[in-house]
Amino acid sequence: MRRPEPVQIVKQRRDAALQRLVAGVPYIQFLGIEIDRRGDELTGVLPYDEKLIGNPMLPALHGGVTAAFLEVTAIMELTWSMTWEDMEAGKITEDAPRVVLPKTIDFTVDYLRTGLPRDAYARARVTRSGRRYASVNVEAWQDNRTRLFAQATGHFLMPQRDV
């Protein structure tokens, strides 16, 4: 039986793959979104910034920022789950071509509460992943995991992969 890989090698490989995915998208950097990883579970983190405000009177996060944060988290989760096996098999190396991202077909956001001027978190779940289409559900919260401030569902067109 093969010995399990040393933990540092596993972590290094997964973090490098995730880093490559996130760093390649200018808009993710622009909003300041970070992706936190625990094993294969991803959490989108949106650190508060004044430029994310949509209503200066309240103040509240811009509804478009919330939508964007949810969409980014959904796309990252979908791409991550789509490439996980190849990545674990060591097929996604430094010089491999860039991973082609899924394209959003439609995206529906439910605004449940005002987005407060503080950090926000989001987690997505791929509810159906087919060869051409995928369906993703995503939830966002701030102080309490059970008090969602927004949720969304989206459909995505999967990139055509060789094989």
Partner: peptide, 13 residues
């Protein structure tokens, strides 16, 4: 291509 999220922000506004 511009991210869908930025288009969302514009549509929402």
């Amino acid at each position: 291509v511009i991210h869908g999220g930025a288009v969302s922000a514009l549509m929402d506004t």
